[in-house]
Design a protein around this nucleic acid. Structure first.
Lengths: 173, 173
DNA sequence: GCGATGTTACTCGGATACTAACTGTCCGAGTAAGCCAGG
DNA sequence: CCTGGCTTACTCGGACAGTTAGTATCCGAGTAACATCGC
């Protein structure tokens, strides 16, 4: 159900968090840091922009920032943003098709309410979404922080500020 | 994540339930009743047989029965049987790839424990599986029974016993 | 009457199309900052 | 000094290719019940 897109998106948001408030790294920098395909990451970022999670500034010193505080961005929001509100189960209303009646004239009862099987799936989907909706980017970042040394984290931040700085001053390539 | 396979499997188990203990309908009969593709349903049934949910008797009067009481068959078991224990998320250990170190020599800390993002996904997967594991085929059947008239349900059962009967007696064309 | 044979209708498993989705790449258009030459 | 054009390095969006997974079909092999034929 969830694949590389979601993984890229979440890790990149985490990296955006490490980079710090005033960095605004570009898609290329974010991709380089994690060694991801640049062009593809751009699309992922676009999806997240449309969902209002991040915002891009254009031009030479352009780059990406959080549009919302990472404390308010849940994993569910990210998944929905890049995968487009995927359903756990796509009900085809099989119940209406039965040998006991013609296809074009099912009895009224066969279509009333939600399909019982569909209902079970919807319930499971709600459980899934509830779980994903309870965790935020900041949550995860703090969790990771607790397990890594502050030196390492400072290294991350420094890499971004240095990379972004040289680009802005035209020292690139 | 879940599609036609699961829908076919669950509806067919429900139909097996309506057919009654002593019916043993064939794949063709089960498919005809719900107007499903026969050859495909056979494969779905095979998956469920391998998982120990249903059992087939071969030969002319052959057909399908429950291998386990429908009270003990959860929706999760069915989904796992036909979809093969799908993961919600396939972690690619992206965290090990970083511009700060060479690909072939990541620091020990970067790989220790489970990836934080992966952990969130595993938790959500557990919530999903917990929800699906709490509902059984018999549950759903009783739920549907409560919403349909006994005449309708008797019609289902009669259709199967009649169909299975004529086949066994060689009156089928 | 009784056993051997053939027919029928199943299941099982593998091989094969067709379609849709995911991943990834490429290219043109628009935008903002720095640089540099001409007035 | 300062204004206009050039270069650079971004973002944005659409179009495209390669690979994989899901849906569906087909065919040959094995099996069990029934019907039929020959003894």
């Amino acid at each position: 159900m969830y694949g590389a897109r979601e993984e890229y998106a979440l890790h990149t948001l985490l990296n955006l968090y490490w980079a710090g408030e005033d960095a605004a790294p570009s898609a290329r920098e974010l991709a380089d840091f994690q060694k991801l395909p640049v062009a593809y990451l751009r699309k992922v970022m676009s999806s997240m922009e449309q969902a209002g999670l991040v915002v891009a500034t254009e031009g030479r010193r352009g780059g990406w920032r959080f549009a919302t505080a990472p404390e308010r961005i849940t994993v569910l929001m990210v998944a929905d943003a890049v995968a487009g509100r995927q359903r756990l189960f796509e009900c085809q209303e099989i119940r209406a098709r039965c040998a006991l009646w013609p296809d074009d004239a099912p009895p009224a009862g066969a279509q009333r309410g939600t399909c019982a099987i569909h209902a079970v799936m919807l319930e499971a989907e709600a459980a899934l979404r509830g779980s994903l909706g309870a965790r935020t980017i900041a949550d995860i970042a703090l969790e990771v922080s607790a397990k890594t040394s502050s030196v390492t984290r400072e290294g991350y931040r420094a890499w971004f500020t240095q990379r972004v700085g040289t680009r802005a001053r035209g020292e690139g390539q």
